[in-house]
């Protein structure tokens, strides 16, 4: 079921409260994520994220907050067409977990799941895959290393 689940973690030299604000406050989300963000860290809150805002084809996607347990857990569904209701079939689930790790240090983990359940129309899927393809070319070799260690061709 969770075939397409991404799990990533990072150690941050800052208290959980500071990290919490960084990942939940719209004006800060704009500095690490989307070009524009309308979102409130409250379960059920519905908002939007805008990517490529300064181009002819800005990409606006919906975001719905699932859980907001300050300052330990923040999760939301996203990448569904704005205006629709977020479901398992049209969105993926992102969950941030913040764990205090000693004085003034935070372990931040992000899990994105449900990528295989994306049941998008051809256009949306095409768009979604196009966004990814840009990165494929850059990352191609490294990805193959990940998938098949020892089988990589040297550059």
């Amino acid at each position: 079921m969770d075939n397409y689940t991404i799990e990533r973690e990072i150690e941050i030299e800052a208290p959980v409260e500071v990290v919490w604000r960084t990942i939940t406050e719209p004006q800060l989300i704009r500095t690490w994520f989307s070009d524009a963000a309308e979102i409130e860290a409250r379960p059920g809150a519905v908002g939007s994220l805008t990517f490529r805002a300064d181009t002819d084809a800005p990409n606006v996607v919906g975001i719905t907050v699932v859980a907001a347990d300050r300052p330990h857990r923040f999760s939301y569904r996203w990448v569904y067409p704005p205006g629709e209701r977020a479901t398992e079939a049209n969105s993926t689930l992102v969950t941030f977990t913040l764990v205090a790790d000693g004085e003034g240090r935070t372990r931040l983990r992000v899990v994105e799941s449900g990528l295989e359940q994306m049941d998008m129309g051809d256009d949306e899927k095409q768009k979604f895959l196009e966004q990814h393809r840009h990165g494929w070319q850059v990352q191609g070799d490294r990805l193959r290393d990940l998938f098949a260690p020892g089988h990589a061709s040297s550059p």
Binding site: Y4, R8, I10, I23, T31, E112, G135, G140
Partner: peptide, 17 residues
């Protein structure tokens, strides 16, 4: 690439965070 690009994106975002 399709599988791992999502992970790479999160790596970049986490570094910025």
């Amino acid at each position: 690439g399709a599988l791992s690009e999502v992970a790479n994106r999160w790596d970049r975002r986490l570094r910025t965070i």
